[in-house]
Design a protein around this nucleic acid. Structure first.
Lengths: 230, 230
DNA sequence: CGCATTGGTGACCACGCGGTCATTATTCTC
DNA sequence: GAGAATAATGACCGCGTGGTCACCAATGCG
């Protein structure tokens, strides 16, 4: 009687779910989670309000899926980055031992630019996050931020131990600076029309981070204590 | 008929308005502008919902006042800071010409710490802003952020022209980094119980900003091009 | 002490939107 | 083409809360 083969007399449009998510991203970016109307999301996706609820339990449900996907992508990006950093140290070395600062910066620059590419592709979500309320989602973002900060701080502390990063800067502060800078730039991307030169930003950022603002031409003697020039 | 002297047979409690603003700050920080209930704000201030509307036209009105006061304080802080920076350059000099980097950093450190003090005192508002929606208010914050970024970028560009800040870092990027770092740290303050050592953060931040992460012990020759150490 | 005046109260209204469900449209099988 | 099964629709309901307003309370004045 082939009762097991009869699955769906009228299969649902497989594109609808993704269309709804796309529409939701735009509406969330425009109005935030609270003010976005399910009606509008559905209409933008070309279906009715009822159809929305065939794919999601609630408005929050859709938002959660969008947020989780995004954080997942960032997570994966972070994992890849860590592996690339370890590989670089294994295969090339670290500054002073087999590698120059310039080589390291070129490598970091590629990785930072990749991350910025991810942020650029998902800038609509960045806009949505800025307008989002609701403890669970803010909590997820806050937790992610904290993890990133700790990751950075751990990385810095490790390399301070290795001796090639200066030890008189609290790694936690470096975490604030790096996470803050990316977030700041990401927020700025939101209302850019054309894609900016992400590589140039990375380059400048890394120069600032590793070398500092103070002009090398006026730099004091490398190891001497300050306060003896007037 | 002394109609001009009879002003208020029953004067309103002059503390009520401020109590309402305090309560509103807390509720906004807890629940955000949208989810905070006027009822709760009023009860927390010890009055009824109706009394709230004797002092404010709407919930948004109270929020606007809170936001404007805060931005005003930041604005004033910024003005004072600019004046202090000009005074320092006028009275002491700039690195290389009458002042050492250490002197400049001590001065900047005081100013940065003052700004952090302001953020610390207003950390409830920082929490509220994180949970706020509504175009006008987000716009105000976004505009303020942009102004700050431009202020920083202009300051950096100027001093690059003076020669004591390295010219190969886009001032706009420095703006992202500085504004982002303060915002990042401010956001972290929100869920700290005890007041952290703001001076230490400033010190570490400025060291990072001016000197960079790269260890001075391993620093390459001041003016020579990189890539000659292996 | 009574009256006028204004502060203060909270039950109530109105409205907007999230979510439901009876109904209709579509697509599959036989 | 009939019938079954399911996708899709949109009118409708319910709820929560912002804002109002008739009413009460406190205070100054004569």
């Amino acid at each position: 009687m082939r009762t097991e083969a009869r699955l769906s007399p009228r299969p649902s449009n497989p594109l609808t779910r993704e269309a709804l998510l796309d529409a939701a991203r735009l509406e969330f970016a425009r109005s935030g989670l609270d003010h976005a109307r399910v009606e509008d999301i559905a209409r933008r996706a070309g279906v009715s309000k009822g159809a929305f609820y065939l794919h999601f339990d609630s408005k929050e449900d859709a938002f959660r899926e969008i947020l989780q996907r995004f954080l997942g992508v960032l997570e994966e990006q972070t994992t890849r980055r860590r592996e690339a950093e370890l590989a670089f140290e294994r295969e090339v070395g670290r500054p002073g031992i087999g590698a120059t600062l310039e080589q390291l910066m070129q490598h970091d620059c590629r990785l930072d630019t990749e991350l910025l590419e991810v942020l650029w592709r998902n800038r609509v979500i960045l806009a949505a996050l800025d307008r989002a309320t609701g403890q669970p989602y803010l909590q997820m973002v806050a937790d992610f931020r904290r993890r990133m900060r700790q990751l950075v701080a751990g990385h810095i502390a490790l390399n301070q131990g290795e001796g090639w990063l200066r030890g008189d800067v609290d790694p936690e502060v470096v975490g604030d600076v790096i996470v803050g800078a990316f977030e700041s730039y990401g927020r700025r991307m939101v209302d850019l029309r054309a894609k900016p030169d992400l590589g140039a930003w990375s380059r400048a950022f890394l120069t600032l981070l590793y070398q500092g603002l103070f002009s090398p031409a006026a730099q004091r003697p490398p190891t001497g204590p300050p306060g003896a020039s007037d």
